[in-house]
Amino acid sequence: MEYRKFHTGPLAVNTYLVYDETKEAFIVDPGGFSEKLCELAEEKGLHVGYILLTHGHGDHIGGIEAFRERYPDIQVVANIVEKEFLMNPTKNSSVLINGKPITVKCDRYVEDGETMRIGNMEIRFLLTPGHTPGGQAIVVGNVCFPGDTLFHGSIGRTDFPGGSYEEILKSLHDVLFLLPEDTVVEPGHMDGTTIGFEKRHNPFARM
């Protein structure tokens, strides 16, 4: 499994293109459209079949429509708890962030602990509420894409609609910190880290 990071959308979200030796690929959190991402996919001969969402905030979903136009058979996947959030521009803050209302109807909704296979990659979905009600971490091998639940040295905001400080701390301690310490963390913003580093150095690990 390999992946590349691209900064997309109005808030420079970390958007990831993930693929393996079978040439099957998926996108994580397209905050905006990226021609560079498409060029890389075409250069490597990848079939981009899925968009996997960690959560439904406007800065993470702004590129879905354009990618659907580029790849007509692409399927969008999110947690079932996030379904209403994705369909409500007020809750998903898309007007505030993108300057226009965005709604997303997914092709597939998953539940906590569910897995799916793309190429030879097994993807595991872990519900991590707190930043949004249906936020989820996407785990592939030893890499975790937690969206905005966990950052290098910090956690996501909880003052948006549907946010909960208590829930995000629970997600941190009872879900993400149970992953192996050598798990690579690739968040929705800023630099990557590891679970072990965050358990030892993240100030919210002691709360």
Score class of each variant (00 low, 15 high):
1 M>I: 04
3 Y>F: 14
6 F>E: 02
9 G>M: 01
11 L>C: 10
11 L>S: 12
11 L>R: 15
17 L>R: 00
18 V>Y: 01
20 D>M: 03
27 I>T: 01
27 I>M: 06
29 D>K: 10
30 P>Q: 09
34 S>E: 04
36 K>I: 05
37 L>H: 03
37 L>Q: 01
44 K>R: 12
46 L>T: 01
53 L>W: 05
54 T>Q: 12
55 H>F: 07
56 G>T: 12
56 G>F: 05
61 I>M: 11
62 G>H: 00
70 R>T: 06
73 D>I: 03
74 I>R: 00
74 I>A: 09
78 A>M: 14
78 A>K: 00
84 E>C: 04
87 M>A: 15
91 K>E: 12
95 V>P: 05
95 V>G: 03
97 I>Q: 01
99 G>N: 08
102 I>G: 01
103 T>H: 09
105 K>I: 08
106 C>P: 01
120 N>R: 15
123 I>F: 06
124 R>Y: 08
133 P>Q: 13
134 G>I: 01
140 V>C: 13
140 V>I: 15
142 N>Q: 14
143 V>C: 11
147 G>K: 01
147 G>E: 01
155 I>F: 09
155 I>P: 00
156 G>Y: 00
156 G>V: 05
160 F>W: 13
161 P>Y: 07
163 G>A: 11
166 E>K: 15
178 L>W: 13
187 P>V: 09
187 P>F: 04
194 T>W: 03
197 F>R: 13
199 K>T: 10
200 R>C: 05
